[in-house]
Design a binder for these strands. Structure first.
Length: 578
DNA sequence: TTAAAGATGATGCGAGCA
DNA sequence: TGCTCGCATCATCTTTAA
């Protein structure tokens, strides 16, 4: 899947690929034409096959339904009808036609289709499912059967389909069920979706992936104009509400049912990711609307981030003491040297790199020689560079990058949080640039204080320098058990050091590799301290961030694809509670 | 060998304008 | 409505210095 999945390009199916040839082997498209009632030829020519209607027909054929049923359904609906309507009719026809046969098939074990082979395999292992199938008399189970059949025709296993139906409920559409299964597949650690599958499963894997892509295309066609809509940022970027000078602005939101219930979770990443990324992230996190917030409403530096969480949003409160909100409040010594023509009051996003000495020297030389304000072109050069690199005035004609401790302060961390312990200055900037803005995150997490007066069990994925831990601590929420997953040894040391210095009474457990946090390990934690109350994580943004000139590859990038680990683990934790 | 410095655009959004 | 332009952006890679 591409991070730009919602781009228009994703609607174009390349019918000339190997997959196309594969389809041609399954569908009578290239070998024979068939007609629909209005006389249009849907298949048999290249142009015909590339139409949206043909794509739908192809997909239904691809599901290995009998051709006569497909034709009958198309006759009933006409080519303009929606994929789901045609599919629904095919399923109904097949249910009517095959019910006794299928029953007989199950009893005799003499089915020849791949689907029925699979079905029998599962039935032999699943008495309860078998019993339910054999006593299939209610309308609900009929509907479930149809959905089960449709999903298995898409090459999902009966087990996957059954779980999806069970989890998504009786009202869930095929779309929702496929979404659920795809999410579950991607979330499985040992069967990671994007890992190379074993050779024997490779063709099945690629075929399924292709079908899923086609389904995505059809879903988007079905949704029409909505398909082109990407998630928009609020203007101003205040999320569901931020404290303002006029008071606390609180908007309302409704949370999807599937997102409610324990544990609470909180996911973060850069707001300005490539197109479609947040749509994908949201779709994997229960379709929750992201909360886009610029931390400039909480501190003296901007930090535009998206947060997806299932936390309540009323009765939030700010960390005390309130952080400085302007550059001059945060860095009072700069006020003396700040020229009137530099009108900045807030810093831009604090990043992982800082300006070179060479640049600050160029700026000094560009300004020297002017008794009063420099000319417009010089001002523009200086301001542009200052904004780009977050330079501040530290002397006459002298700008400088922020010091590490200043960045710590602006992000809401204790002074010297990242200092010492063997970490280099470069790595301090890197760790800080990748971290949460504590005041912002604490504002969102503040609703937990009354809910967990006795303390909280935290699963902190991609912990970094412990932004979530610091936020909860500063909120006065005791940290009972913290499982911190962080690959960087330097960051682990920072969190461990902070843990010791703040005299935490709870337990801190470090895990380096998020991919090694499996179900067994989580079960151990659950058995040990009863499960997690909160799952926090800001997965790597490397392949999403605008500053990355080399590998801005979206959610499928090397680092940013770890988002799916967050989904996987959250799903496991949720499953252990419910 | 490691840390620091320096050079390296693309992308997407919004404002302004015709 | 569509175009141009300005602007911001949790970074990476190569070279240089210590």
């Amino acid at each position: 899947m591409d991070g730009n999945a919602s781009n228009d390009e994703s609607f174009n199916i390349d019918w000339d690929t190997d997959d196309e040839r594969e389809i041609e082997n399954l569908v009578p498209c290239s070998s024979s034409s068939f007609s629909v009632p209005n006389g249009n030829v849907n298949a048999g020519s290249g142009e015909g096959c590339s139409s949206a209607v043909s794509a739908k027909v192809r997909l239904i054929y691809d599901m290995k339904f009998p051709e006569d049923l497909v034709l009958k359904a198309i006759e009933q609906h006409g080519e303009e009808d929606q994929f789901e309507s045609i599919l629904e009719t095919v399923l109904s026809l097949q249910a009517l036609q095959n019910s006794p046969e299928q029953q007989q098939c199950i009893n005799s074990g003499q089915c020849s289709s791949a689907y029925n082979d699979d079905l029998l395999n599962v039935l032999s292992d699943s008495d309860s499912w078998c019993e339910s199938e054999m006593n299939n008399t209610t309308n609900t189970s009929m509907v479930d059967d149809k959905r089960l059949l449709a999903l298995t025709k898409m090459d999902f296993s009966v087990a996957e389909a059954s779980i999806a139906i069970d989890r998504c409920g009786p009202e869930a559409s095929i779309d929702e069920l496929t979404d659920f299964i795809i999410a579950a597949q991607m979330a499985r650690a040992d069967e990671a979706f994007f890992k190379e599958p074993p050779d024997e499963n490779k063709s099945k894997h690629s075929e399924r992936k292709r079908k899923l892509n086609e389904l995505e295309v059809l879903k988007k066609e079905k949704k029409g104009a909505q398909a082109n809509e990407t998630i928009r940022f609020p203007k101003p970027m205040v999320g569901f509400g931020v404290p303002t000078e006029e008071g606390t602005l609180v908007l309302q939101r409704s949370l999807p049912m599937a997102a409610t219930g324990p544990p609470y979770f909180y996911y973060e990443n850069v707001a300005q990711a490539p197109k479609g990324v947040w749509d994908t992230i949201s779709s994997f996190l229960y379709d929750i609307q992201p909360e886009f917030v610029d931390s400039k409403f909480f501190s003296a530096a901007a930090r535009k981030r998206g947060y997806i969480h299932n936390l309540p949003i009323d009765k939030r409160f700010l960390l005390k003491p309130l952080p400085p909100k302007t550059i001059h409040e945060a860095l009072p010594l700069t006020r003396r040297w700040w020229p009137s023509w530099d009108t900045r009051t807030k810093l831009n996003c604090l990043q992982t790199c800082t300006a070179s000495a060479k640049l600050t020297e160029r700026i000094r030389k560009a300004l020297e020689g002017y008794e009063n304000d420099p000319p417009q072109n010089v001002q523009k050069f200086v301001i542009d560079e200052c904004k780009k690199w977050n330079l501040v005035w530290v002397g006459k004609n002298k700008v400088a990058p922020l010091e590490c401790d200043e960045v710590e302060m602006l992000l809401g961390f204790p002074k010297n949080h990242t200092r010492g312990g063997g970490i280099s200055r470069t790595d301090r900037y890197k760790s800080l640039g990748n971290s949460f803005q504590v005041d912002t995150v604490a504002y969102h997490l503040s609703v937990l204080k009354d809910r967990f007066p006795g303390g909280i069990n935290l699963l902190s994925l991609f912990s970094g320098i412990g932004g979530a831990e610091v936020a909860l601590h500063r909120l006065g929420i005791p940290l009972k058990n913290v499982v911190s997953v962080e690959i960087s040894e330097a960051n682990q040391n920072i969190v461990r050091s902070w843990w010791e210095q703040t005299n935490q009474k709870g337990n801190l457990i470090h895990i380096a590799d998020v991919q090694k946090l499996n179900g067994d390990k989580l079960e151990e934690f659950v058995a040990s301290f009863g499960g997690f109350d909160l799952v926090v994580g800001g997965s790597p943004c490397n392949n999403l961030a605008g500053s990355n000139r080399h590998h801005r590859d979206g959610l499928e990038g090397e680092q940013s694809s770890l988002f799916y680990e967050y989904v996987r683990i959250l799903d496991l934790v949720k499953g252990m509670i419910s």
